[in-house]
Design a binder for these strands. Sequence first.
DNA 1: TAGTTTTATGAAAGCGCTTTCAGTTTAGCA
DNA 2: TGCTAAACTGAAAGCGCTTTCATAAAACTA
Lengths: 335, 335
Amino acid sequence: MQKKRIPNIYDVAKTSGVSISTISRVLNAPDKVNPETRRRVISAIDKLGFIPKAEARAHAMKNTNRIGVLTPYFTAPSFVQRLRGVVAALSKANYELVIYPVDSVEHLQAYTSSIPIMRNIDGLIIMSLAIEEKDALRLHDNSMETVLIEYAHPRLNNISIDDVQGGHLVAKHLIEKGHTRVAFLGDIEPPERYAIHPVKSRLQGFKETLASADISLQKKYIVQASYSQDESRQAAYHLLTLSKPPTAIFAASDIQAASVMKVARQLKIRIPEDMAVIGFDDIDMADHMDITTIRQNLDESGRLAAEILLSRIAEPSRPLQHIRLPLTLIERLTT
Amino acid sequence: MQKKRIPNIYDVAKTSGVSISTISRVLNAPDKVNPETRRRVISAIDKLGFIPKAEARAHAMKNTNRIGVLTPYFTAPSFVQRLRGVVAALSKANYELVIYPVDSVEHLQAYTSSIPIMRNIDGLIIMSLAIEEKDALRLHDNSMETVLIEYAHPRLNNISIDDVQGGHLVAKHLIEKGHTRVAFLGDIEPPERYAIHPVKSRLQGFKETLASADISLQKKYIVQASYSQDESRQAAYHLLTLSKPPTAIFAASDIQAASVMKVARQLKIRIPEDMAVIGFDDIDMADHMDITTIRQNLDESGRLAAEILLSRIAEPSRPLQHIRLPLTLIERLTT
DNA sequence: TAGTTTTATGAAAGCGCTTTCAGTTTAGCA
DNA sequence: TGCTAAACTGAAAGCGCTTTCATAAAACTA
């Protein structure tokens, strides 16, 4: 019992007595072939269990039915939720998703310089990454369809939110709740060149609205903390053990809000009675933990990115899209 | 200023004055070409900015440097953490990751029947999915390297945990804490044919150890709840509002434990004073929320799966691996 | 220095499809 | 019945690489 080879299009041609062109046609343009021959071919296909090799197809057609996502920290909840949206849109369209995790500038550069030329994907979504001008141009010049999330470039599609307005919303809410001694915890000095700085804008908006209500955000109430758990906790600890701790903390992300809450629990500080906490993003966990937060529709941003990409791949002449997604405050139990 | 074409190997051959074979050689087996010619070729490559097209390469070499992951609920934290491990291992080896989200049996079947023949990936990781005998055989017969996570088949690699023992650990812990009226919340009747049933085993182990300590787990204290937030919360509500509520709840996953805690919060039930909660998995969130749980090393399972896959792709003669990962109890603040 | 290895290269045959182009039938119509 | 248009189909030319095989040149041997 010899192992039979995986059949190729020539095998099908042989057993159905037509040329390979016809096989290809019944697969890709069935209406262009006589119903009778089509039947014969199909039965041969079924009999042999023929499935066209994806690589060969991609090679001949110069498209891969695959799109890529370039992302840092791809396992952070907010990124995952974006990815969820991307996947939702892609699987409908029968596109595959390949993930390129980025953890250094070199990494990012390597990707942006090789991807458009290697041509192993049809389109690219770049999440929360600052790309250099020359890389953006390379993508554009080599006509690699791209959509940027949380970053913008005039020649590429992009989807973003108004972080400053996000800061406004938070401040407004806290003011309404009667807080006057508030603090901010977030990653305002990202050291990596490739990362972006939405957090600074959130802080800016926060400050602005506070100022307009004559509330000053003192320096000592602004603490730097990277996305990492350790740093967030230390920063939270610092804030919560000040001689005159704030009555409300705006954490620049829900994850960090959760860290604040964890530290508060250790210090027996009740939330929201003793201290209010508000996050940003509205990741799934925020609901689980009843964290008041600013919702940016993460799933939607991913879905939209994918849809824009697919539509431009299908029809490259369509205009560029620069989309700004709305933000809403979701009040739960921590403020 | 005409747009210059993306260069191919022929262009490089022309400008460096050698044949395409030589170009290919300096790229894939540099030591087989004279240092002097190599230098010339390399400078031509740099000058033109040549990068080999991935598809063409894949077509000629019959391997893609890409591995696939078949997974349900790919955005659930536990899956994401497994993926994190996979990605960590792959990016070292310069392999790409493509994700195939599965949400129905048809979906799964379609994948398992076409993937091995389409040959657009070199290897496959199947997470928490029950695959049918014939599909497993197809994968094996078409020599598509595969590793199964949380499921087993004699002809394929697999990685699993001892869910029964997990149940034992939970029961033991609760008994030591002095609980005698305990409950179980989990997805014990998954309706989807393609999903697997580790939760039943956890319940079984839980029961066994309780029984050996003469504690009976009453029917009314075993509640069914799917992975969905709504159902988990309803089930939790039911349990917490019984006339004689349990003093401890074993939730079959951390996410569900979080739901229980959320409901408890609403009902002003203090944890752990009024009621203990223990989860399963030890996802990142468990630490954030200080949930006592059973740790199964999710990241590690993913990393291991990828490593096994890569090693077998490189050396198909290596023996199959059937690995069982250890479980440990992590005590935090909810018990 | 003739004979034998070794090293370096190019020609050409794949890899398995899609698609254009031209030729052959068949159908449509007066 | 003769002529034109429409419908099918096959040959062949890509797509852009890798790799085998043969050959030529260089390097050793005795």
